[in-house]
Design a protein around this nucleic acid. Structure first.
Lengths: 125, 125
DNA sequence: GATATAATGATAATAGTAATCATTACTGAT
DNA sequence: ATCAGTAATGATTACTATTATCATTATATC
């Protein structure tokens, strides 16, 4: 995998923001640095970066995919009110049962849905 | 929500098989009973059944969506070898941290990736 | 059974992502 | 530093899964 300014810009953007971004959001952000970057290049690099383990992706219920440059094991919470994505520690001891069955777990994706503290406060009457 | 033979057939199929099926697989299976059912109807009913909580959906890494008529809380394991989907108990005590933060958790989706016992055995040299 | 209307089948439309291909630009050897 | 080989790019087209549209059909209520 060669070093290109497009790939570097995408990775730097994802690492600079502790948030989750869709492919188009990344495209828009990177275009400020590389105005003529192609959306295809963004998708190609996101795929390659996932493949190499430099970023991860989060798929939410409504078929949206978000990319995350923070790769330490963590769970995601999707707020159905404000649509925000929040990080949480991954619960431990989760894969015990699977390992017992002889399964080799290479990654685990935990996404929870509900209301964040703010939205929960506002909907309570 | 009205009772239709299309909806009944979809739900019965999903409940009869303890496996996970994509929309097209469901379409093909139900077409044996209702040959002229439309794929749009399948999608419409799958959406409605998810909405009403009668089935659940599992999104895997490679953008495939599978539907599951077994709705008791459980985690999914996707084998990257044979592409099979396996069920596991959902680990307990998982949402403690989220609840402590004032978050209201309504559902949790845990998908793990790796190799099932069979595929792990075959790839070990 | 007649009526109201939700759901259907057929089709077209959309959105997100992947493939194509000529051109550009990294990288390693000279 | 220059060059050659080739991986990655931008522009575009193609694809696939899903959703919307709409006239027609079938379900539930009276």
């Amino acid at each position: 995998m060669r070093e290109t300014k497009q790939k570097t810009a995408i990775l730097e953007f994802l690492r600079s923001k502790r948030q989750h971004h869709s492919a188009i959001q990344i495209y828009d952000a990177v275009r400020e640095k590389i105005p003529n970057i192609s959306l295809g290049t963004v998708y190609r690099n996101l795929g390659a970066l996932i493949e190499s383990g430099e970023i991860i992706s989060v798929e939410t219920n409504d078929k949206c995919v978000f990319y995350d440059g923070f790769i330490a094991d963590h769970a995601h919470f999707v707020c159905q009110g404000c649509k925000g994505i929040f990080d949480f520690d991954m619960p431990t001891g989760m894969t015990e049962e699977m390992k017992k069955s002889g399964f080799k777990v290479s990654s685990e994706h935990l996404v929870c849905y509900g209301l964040c503290s703010e939205c929960a406060k506002n909907t309570a009457q």
